[in-house]
Design a protein around this nucleic acid. Structure first.
Lengths: 200, 200
DNA sequence: CCAGATATGTAGTGTTCACTACAGATGTGG
DNA sequence: CCACATCTGTAGTGAACACTACATATCTGG
């Protein structure tokens, strides 16, 4: 039997375009008309490929978190907890003010609060943010085992802290903070991790 | 000439109800039907009193920031920069997990990203968050002048930092973080301010 | 070249949205 | 008690929304 007419657009490229729309307008603020126009396709193609609007968001998030996961691997590969925090927060400052993307972080801009019918979107985003936090916690646990962090340090609390600062920086970026302002925040934030580190 | 029929509802009570709806669902997620039901009035009363949906949000924000401003005055009345940070962040941890309110902060939940026609809502919220940051900056400037903060400390950066942590905590609260988790974040965050403080 | 399968473009569908026209109700000033 | 002004409830308005029916186009397997 035949395989049917092949798709005329590249799903990954289309997802990148959709990602930008969700990033800029949020899940509820993004309309199907904006999404299809940015993706260069018509609504039936979108629904055939991604199911519905929420399916499209999840596919875009998958692509976003995949790229972000690769970067997180580099972050936690840093030799010390302090250096992990520096790479993480300085990297966040740069990424969230990268003119190639909308300002801020998709995992925040996507939707913190949503209306009836989209209640699970904030949960979906929170779950993905939690993945980053998990990765940081494991790294800080190791740092404590290695004697890099003090005996009194709480790796879970440190991971939550770095994650919270990242999110806060994302919100500031989306409301106009420039790269230098975010770097200053990162610089201050690192000092809390430093305070939990064993001096050389 | 006559004064007309008097209003049958209390505008402040109605605003408190509307505030809660915006807080829980965000500006775009909140519908007029939800708002009017919560406020106990019908749409014409809403529009006669507040103009339109955005006018209602601004009125609710005015009421929110007024109460918050009184609390911020207590925060900056603390004797040292470190104690300001403690009061601020510990207070945030408690307020954002107060079961009397929706979790998180209205100035964040209200809307980080919005669709066409509501572009200025995020700006409106950002402007109100900036007021808190301004208040913190002035307080930290004083702390530096008083020799409470080190000569190398940057009051503006510290204020931005505390503000960013507050926002990040709000997002975490809205996605289910409990009070203890937020207090741990606050505890770590304070250490960065402590690192900028002159020891006794 | 034909049958089955999938994609595409046009042109809608019903629903929900913010907002309002209108008539009746309730007040004040003369 | 009357003219006027403002509020209230009912019942909508047009617009925008997510989503889709359907005819047509383009592929593969036989």
């Amino acid at each position: 039997m035949g395989m049917g007419r092949p798709r005329e657009f590249d799903a990954d490229i289309a997802l990148d375009r959709a990602m930008e729309v969700f990033w800029r307008h949020g899940y509820e603020g993004a309309t199907i008309a904006q999404l299809t126009e940015a993706m260069g396709i018509n609504p039936p193609s979108l629904y055939a490929c991604f199911g519905n609007k929420e399916g499209l968001l999840k596919a875009a998030l998958d692509r976003y978190t995949k790229a972000r996961g690769a970067w997180m691997d580099e972050v936690v590969a840093a030799p010390t907890a302090r250096e992990v925090a520096v790479r993480m927060l300085m990297g966040i400052a740069d990424k969230q003010t990268d003119p190639a993307n909308p300002p801020g972080c998709l995992l925040v801009q996507g939707g913190i609060a949503c209306g009836t019918g989209s209640e699970n979107v904030p949960f979906e985003l929170a779950a993905r943010r939690a993945q980053n936090e998990d990765q940081l916690r494991e790294r800080f646990l190791r740092a404590k085992a290695e004697g890099d962090l003090k005996e009194t340090a709480d790796p879970a609390a440190l991971a939550r802290y770095v994650s919270a600062v990242s999110v806060g920086m994302g919100v500031m970026a989306s409301s106009g903070a420039d790269r230098e302002a975010l770097r200053q925040v990162a610089d201050v934030a690192v000092q809390a991790v430093e305070a939990q580190s064993v001096r050389d």
